[in-house]
Every structure is written in C-alpha cells, then in structure tokens.
Design a binder for these strands. Structure first.
Length: 659
DNA sequence: GAGCACTGC
C-alpha cells in the first residue's frame, strides 16, 4: 500500500485522570459565566475533556444557579450504558451512592430519589418525561450530551426544549416551579455552528486532552476494501511496533470473510513472524464471544479486532494503537414510498473518519490508515444524515401530537424531516385510527402513546385486549421490539439451523419466536446460558423481551379500557394473536404469486420472504409480516401465516370478501 | 438464500 502522511489530532484521554486535573477545570469560570448570562450555551469539546462528568458538577456547585432536588440538572445520553456508568463515576467522585445526590434513569431502571440533584438519563426518558410534565418543571438545567450524534430523540428533544424555554420565559412569575430553563448542548466540533444558529446562543470551547493520531492515506481508491484491509493489516503488522489493530468493517458477513482471509494468509507466512490474534466484534454476537475482543492478546501476539460500527462510539477497547478504516458503514434508511427500510453500505462522513481515527489515540499516540486517498476525504459529507432524515416517523409524530403540537409540519425542527416521510407517518397514524380524520389525536392514539412500542405494535396490543389474547400477544410484541433472537454462527451455520428447527411453528416466525421465549422461561435460571448456547439462541434479547413483556403488562392496565376486554373467543390462541397482528400490520398482508414471490394486497408491491424466515421454503398462500427490508431484494421479515378470510372480517372497509 | 448501531413514563 502506498501512502502519504498527514498530521491529525486525535481525541482521547485517560479514564484514570484525577477529576480536578481535567482540562475543563481551566475554563470552569468561563462556563459558569456563559451559562448564567445566556439561556443556552453550546459547549464544544472532544472526548477526554471531562465534560460529561465535570460540567454537571461545576454547575451544581456554583452559587449562580439554584440547583436543588426538585429543580435539578438533567444530563441526557444517547445510550443507556453511558447514562449508567457516568452517573456511577460522578457519584463516586462526590463520595455518595448512586441514587442519592447523583442518579440515573434508563428504561427499567430508575436510580433517583428525592435527594437527586444531578440526574443522567437517556434521551428517550427525558422525552417521555415531557409527556407528563410538559414544562419539564423539575429541572432548572438540561444538558444534552453527544449532540453531534443527532439521534432522532435528540432532534425532537432540542425542538421541545426550545419551546419550553419560550414558555417558561413567558410565565416567569408563577412560583419557583416555572423558572427559566437553562440549556447546555455539548457537541464535538463539526456540528457546533448548527446548534448555535438554531438556539441563537454563544459557543465555548473546552480544551481536550489529546494524543496525536498520525493519518495515512492511499494514493488511489481501493477496488476491494476488504482485501485491501487485510493487506494493510499484514503490512502494518510487519512494519509497525507493538500495539493492537482495530479494523472497521460493515457487517458480520464481511467480518467473517476478512477473518478467513487473514487466517489463510497467516498460514503461508514464515513461522518466525509474530502471529496475529484475530477477534471479531459485532452486536449480534453472543456476549461471551464479544468479551474475547476485550481480553489482552496472548503473549507474543498482536491482536486484530475486526469490528462493525459498534467500536466507533459504543465500545472502547484498551490497547488499540492502530486503526484501519476502509471508510464505509452499513446504514439503514427508510423509504416512505415503499414503506421499507434499506440496508446499504455507504461511505462514512468526515466526522466519522475523525471519530474512527480517534480510537487509535485513547491511551497514547496512534496511527490511522485510511484506505482511500486524502482527496476523497474532502469529498465526503461533513456529517452523515441525521436520523430524522432517514427513519419512519409514525411514533415521533404521535408523540408530538400527544405533547400538544397540533401542526407538526410547522414545528421548528433543527432540520426538518423529508415531507414524504411526514405525509407517510400521518397516513399510517390515520389508518391505525391513532389520529382522527381532522388530524387530532384520538382516544386510541393517546392509549397507544402510553405504550413504549411503535404505534403499529401498540394498536396490536389494544386489539389483543379486545380479542382476549393479551398475554400471548404482549410476548410476541416484546419479541418484535428486541434484536435478533436467533444466532447464525459463521462456522456452524448448518448446526444452528438444525437447532432452530426444534422450535419451528407452522404459523410462522412470530409464533416460532413465542415458542422460543416460552421454552427459555421454562429452563432453570442457572441453565439458561448453556441452553441458549446449545440452541444457537441469544439469551440477552430474550431476557430483554421478558423485561419489556413485564413493563407492557403493567402499562397496559393504565391504557386499556377494562370494559372492552374480550372474554370468550372461539379462535385458538394462535389465531387470535395473528388476528391482533393483522389490525396493526394489514398493509403488510400479502398473497403468494405463481412465481413464488408475494404481492401485498393493498399496495400491490412485489416482496420476497426473507431467507431467515421459517416460512422461506414453505411459501403459504396468505401471509402478514412486520418488516420490509431492501437488501439484494425487497425482503419481508417476521412472517406469519394468516387466513385470507380474516382480512375482510377484521377490516371490512379495506378488504372485500373473496378478493 | 441472508442479519449496521442505538433507544422507550
């Protein structure tokens, strides 16, 4: 590989720093001044500046702000692990227990109390809180961390907070509960200006503690970046001093291919050379296998971690000094015209290039090998499209309606979502009767909002209640809200497939998943890990599904009307569950065509059953599915068998008998 | 014939 050097600042810092020693303390006074003089402030700082742990403490300890329990500071994080671990760290620094002065709230876990002054929460939690406390009156300062990630919840929260600030300003006199709301947005460099402009507020830089990361580029673009990455791995291994290598790839398949190529190549090398220890890291992997990526490489070897984007922000691996970055990522994008998600490999943004390079400089100086020319770097988009531009908005629109935002299209978005996606969301909510024909939220819509699942699944739950199959349906719904339960091991694919056959239910994927969950729950606690391993099943999503099932069982009591509860039902439990599914997913009812594909009944769209479906070979006459993904074909996932007669029975306005 | 990453009163 030919390459050229260019200096580049990495980011990073040491986790073991003494807190008072962090760079942020050099500007603490400026920050306090800026926050006290302005309603909003944007803070720009790289990882390692200590902003997430120190800023809330600096503001809480300043006499300038009235921060006390009941009028505290809320710090949001995109990911739950971050909310939990940062809260633990801050509580430790202040010599208290989590849940007292410092606490956190994430789904299923609320470690806060009456004493809590600093609360870390996921963005989703704060958004949910605004549904019941529309002025967020229990906070005097809200800090939005990792703003540059631009998650969907962040974008909505920011818009909401701007409204709340205006509202609180308008009613300053109404006692201490309605004080002005201070907002601090913390972001990495690239997006800061956008936030300042939107909030009309100043920006402040926090110095970071950085180790330099030297950047290398290729002279020309690579034809096959997996092959190029494998070559780069060996070249680096031969030429560079000790230090582990982190290689970014886009998915499981690519990672397995690269692993095979590296092993193959390693066999043909002189035995005198230091061996490479290859580990893989992606989210769908069972956790015990994931842990291998974190263990130090065996003595006398160099570790190579083949990872997806999971290693870009979510997980940090010690010992990495070299990053190899082909410059691609697999990205999900919603297409409102086909109502499907596409999963495609796209070039990363400039911000991601920097983020990935920074992973080499977390513990010391590092090097990043970019597998594209430097000239290409400047052609990349500044930042990748925010989630609001590439996702289904039904759930968001319904939540906004519940928050009293009548005209969603006129909402002051940081960046507006695509018009087509908004229109599609309205159509979907109308068809689910979550909105009335005038566009206002209906009684059912409010109930659906009370359930922490997509509106479609919420509709399914409400129907299940009426059909008397609530308990089993809640389990199915929970299973549909978690990552993949079935694990497809790279090397033991056939074995995995055979193991999965044991749970096969003729009714399709949904009822098969239900059978797996039921079986899992019947296995003794201590034996579950082994059971999961033996059956090529992921235990984590099953545990999470059970948590969601319990949460939904609780929530549904508050939203479902007891008088509407169904009693006797002539249907079998399975039939009733599938009927409930139909009332949410009727747009995904499809009929087999002579060529073995399917056509959706309402929109006449050609789809194929996903190869991972238990119905892939069976191809029943009429099916319903929950997800449409465009990869090599338009694939229907989570497919279930239905009786064509059920459609007009349940939805006479949409389906005609005998059609 | 195939599964980026997150999140929810």
């Amino acid at each position: 590989m030919k390459r050229r050097r260019r200096g580049e600042d990495g980011n990073g810092g040491s986790g073991s720093a003494v807190s008072s020693d962090l760079p942020i303390h050099r500007v603490a006074r400026d920050i306090v001044k800026a926050v006290s003089e302005n309603e909003s402030v944007v803070l720009v700082g790289e990882t390692g500046s200590g902003k997430s742990t120190q800023l809330p403490q600096i503001l809480a300890d300043s006499k300038k702000f009235a921060v006390f329990p009941g009028a505290g500071i809320c710090v949001t994080q995109p990911r739950r692990v971050a909310a939990v671990t940062i809260a633990q760290r801050v509580a430790f620094e202040r010599g208290t227990k989590v849940g007292k002065e410092v606490g956190y709230a994430v789904r299923f876990e609320d470690e806060t109390s009456r004493e809590t002054k600093i609360k870390y929460a996921t963005e989703g939690i704060l958004l949910r809180e605004s549904l019941s406390d529309s002025a967020l009156s229990r906070y005097s300062i809200v800090i939005l961390d990792e703003a540059h990630e631009r998650t969907l919840n962040f974008d909505i929260l920011l818009g909401m907070l701007k409204r709340i600030q205006r509202e609180r300003r308008r009613r300053p006199g109404e006692g201490s509960r309605i004080r002005p709301l201070k907002l601090v947005v913390m972001s990495a460099t690239l997006e800061a200006e956008t936030f300042c402009e939107y909030l009309g507020c100043p920006k402040l830089d926090i110095p970071g503690r950085k180790f330099p990361v030297e950047a290398f580029y290729t002279f020309s673009p690579e034809q096959d970046y997996v092959e190029a990455a494998v070559c780069a791995t060996f070249q680096l291994h031969d030429e560079e001093p000790d230090g582990d290598i982190l290689l970014f790839l886009t998915g499981q398949e690519e990672i397995e291919a690269a692993e095979a190529m590296i092993s193959e190549h390693a066999r043909n090398r002189p035995s005198a050379t230091k061996p490479l220890a290859v580990v893989m890291l992606y989210a769908a992997m069972p956790p015990e296998t994931q842990l291998k990526a974190f263990r130090p490489a065996p003595e006398g070897t160099r570790k190579v971690i083949l990872a997806t984007n999971i290693a870009e922000t979510s997980l940090t691996i010690d010992g990495v000094r070299y990053v190899i970055d082909p410059g691609f990522v697999k990205q999900r994008r919603y297409n409102p015209n086909t109502c499907s998600d596409s999963l495609s490999v796209v070039p990363i943004s400039r911000a991601q290039v920097k983020q990935r390079a920074g992973r080499a400089g977390r513990q010391g100086p590092g090097k990043c090998f970019h597998l594209f020319p430097e000239s290409e770097f400047f052609k990349l988009p500044r930042a990748s499209a925010p989630e609001i531009k590439r996702t289904n908005l039904a759930s968001t629109v319904l939540q906004m309606k519940a928050l009293g935002i009548e005209d969603v299209a006129a909402f002051e978005f940081l960046e507006p979502p695509p018009k087509a996606a908004l229109v599609r969301a309205f159509e979907q909510l109308l068809s689910l009767r979550a909105l009335s024909s005038s566009g206002s939220i209906s009684r059912d819509g409010r109930r659906m909002c009370g359930l922490p699942v997509d509106p479609t699944l919420a509709k399914v739950i409400l129907t299940a209640h009426k059909l008397g199959c609530l308990d089993e349906t809640l389990k199915v719904v929970s299973l549909l809200s978690v990552e993949s339960v079935l694990h497809f091991s790279g090397k033991r694919k056939e074995e995995a497939h055979q193991a999965h056959l044991k749970f096969l239910h003729d009714g399709g994927d949904l009822l098969t998943l239900l059978r797996i969950l039921t079986t899992f729950r019947n296995v003794k606690d201590r034996e579950r890990a082994k059971w999961a391993k033996d059956n090529f099943v992921n235990a984590r999503p099953l545990r999470k599904a059970w948590n969601i099932y319990n949460q939904l069982t609780n929530q549904v009591k508050y939203v479902a009307d007891a008088s509407e509860a169904g009693e006797e039902n002539p249907d079998s439990m399975e039939d009733a569950v599938m009927k409930a599914m139909i009332t949410g997913y009727f747009a995904n009812a499809a009929q087999r065509t002579p060529d073995g594909a399917y056509k959706t009944l309402l929109s006449n769209q050609k789809v194929h059953i996903h190869p991972a479906s238990v119905l892939f070979k069976k191809k029943p006459e009429t099916v319903i599915f929950t997800e449409l993904v465009q990869t090599s074909k338009l694939y229907a996932r989570n497919v279930g068998v239905i009786d064509a007669g059920w459609l007009p029975e349940l939805l006479p306005d949409l389906f005609v008998v005998g059609s």
